[in-house]
Amino acid sequence: MNAVEFILAGMLAAATPFLLAALGELVVERAGVLNLGVEGLMAFGAVIAFIIVYHGGGHFIAFIAAGICGALLSLVFALIALGFRANQVATGLAIGILGQGLSALFGKSYESLTVKGLPKIGIPGLADLPVIGGLFVQDSVVWLSLLATLCIWATFAFTKTGLVIRAVGENPKAAHAIGYPVIAVRVAAVAFGGMMAGLAGAYASVVYTPLWADGMIAGRGWIAIALVVFGTWLTGRVFLGACLFGAVSLMSLAAQTTGLDLPSQLLSSLPYIVTIIVLGIISADRRLLKLNGVASLGEPFER
């Protein structure tokens, strides 16, 4: 298998933790809320899922539990940032620290243990294509994540729900005036984002690299938040960004196998460096950000 085939085959799986978390944060930010706790929510979901799979609960239950736990922890964020109108940046950071702490606490006796991942499902016909065939052999969660991307895109493009979320994020006062429950919509969006982050963490710990290590999320939650900016709050672009980061994280692996003489620390920091560079390039276009950005992002709503 050459490097191109390797990256094509693995890209979607590597992208999935980024994708799930970023899709969740996209919905949260579209509703006008900035939740910076994604890294901690992912870590919390990851440890819950790992413990359940390790004790034989199975992947299905593990993902459900991780989603519920992520949503519950993000509701603490909602209570404090939306209920008590606390600073969203500080609240998000606190939830992040708390989630990472809980994950380390619960995961302590599971350090370096492994579990079995998920089998891959190929699409008949397409899977046998040369070079790009690997793209069509993925585990079930990857296929479901692609479906989720489609659903979220369609929700924002065609449904009233999507319209209400956007109205609440763009102009909460006007949305309130025409009778939409601003706070309730935002709480629901935050819970959805927490659930998606929990699922993303679960994918990282029980499917993508099915082994437990403290700090295994390794900045992926933060990159997911950056991806929402890269995607200028558009579902399709967030998906492309996640694929790019999936490819970048695989490239560091591919570079090591091809015997490129680069320090492994440089390759490990590649995703972070790419994030910084892309963030600079996208943000420099102020008009683009202003056009697609969410007007009331991070501001508390007061009647």
Binding site: W222, L266, S269, I273, T275, I276, L279, S283, A284, L289
Partner: peptide, 19 residues
């Protein structure tokens, strides 16, 4: 470059650890 300082400063911390 108008980039969000929260994300950039955090990413730089992860790079610093690798350095």
């Amino acid at each position: 470059l108008n980039a969000n300082e929260i994300l950039v400063s955090l990413m730089l911390s992860l790079v610093a650890a690798q350095l």
